[in-house]
Design a protein around this nucleic acid. Structure first.
Lengths: 149, 149
DNA sequence: GCATAAAGTTAAGCCCGCTTAACTAAAAAG
DNA sequence: CTTTTTAGTTAAGCGGGCTTAACTTTATGC
């Protein structure tokens, strides 16, 4: 009965350290771009899930269509987003990252990865092997939980 | 030369999956409490670093003293924070979580841990051992990087 | 075809976070 | 003891995010 406690504890500690650092990083980066968190989150979401319509933005962030429209409009005017008419439904709009927006998101991600690489470099081959295997187990488990939901 | 790439990739994938889920969880929880993110962050920070004065809040969040004072004031009025006079310096105030505030933060943390425990339960003893060892390596490395900075 | 539903936009109004500026009170420096 | 610095509060004002309500335009159901 000691093992279950141990893995529980290890996961919690790791999450605490990891999340703390990671969230600080993101919010500082967002601040440095001059974008608000809601605006930044929309860019991130478009990056991860690809182009979509306005209604999807409003659903995913649980805000009214009006709010989504206004947020997106600012991002379009700042040239981070392209808003075109959906050819298959002329009511709908297609939102996608502009070249500018894609670059901004990539820069943020690169900065986050820099920190990870610094960590990765601290281990020898044997340690790396162990870590890779463990992370694959964890990632797999997390993803399968996600899908079940 | 394949190993360094592999650990880099494993870490990145894990971070993507993990951060996504974790940040969604936190922001939904904050929303459910009726607190804004800045207010919620102050509670979290007080939880992690213990009681402090107003000026530390203003430094850590990089906002003006006035902004900090106003945010804290709302939290005091909502009964999440206690604001007492620092006996060793009568200009300064001592901010600490009230019973109410501590409970709220704990609830949030518990919810986050629930998810972790679900993941932890998916592994057999051998896998758990491997994961615990890997996470300890990672946590250690991350913490030592933190301190160097 | 006509009514209804769906996708977005616009405007008015609210609350919130933040800043600067002016202020009080206490500690530190000289 | 006076001056300066430090901790915090208060008020005015700006901009942002959000909501509801009213509206336009396009698709769908019957």
């Amino acid at each position: 009965m000691t093992k279950p406690i141990q893995i529980t504890q290890s996961l919690r500690t790791w999450m605490d350290v990891f999340m703390h650092r990671s969230m600080r990083g993101w919010s500082q980066f967002a601040k440095s771009t001059g974008l608000s968190m809601p605006q930044f989150s929309i860019l991130m979401q478009l990056h991860h899930k690809g182009p979509c319509g306005l209604s999807e933005i409003s659903e995913r962030f649980d805000i009214s269509g009006a709010a989504a429209s206004q947020l997106v409009d600012k991002l379009v005017q700042s040239n981070y987003l392209e808003r075109t008419e959906d050819p298959s439904d002329r009511r709908a709009k297609l939102l996608r990252l502009s070249e500018n927006g894609a670059k901004l998101v990539d820069d943020g991600i690169q900065q986050r990865y820099l920190w990870l690489d610094e960590i990765a470099n601290k281990f020898d081959a044997a340690q790396q092997k162990k870590i890779v295997e463990a992370l694959e187990l964890l990632t797999h488990a997390a993803q399968s939980l996600e899908e079940k939901k």
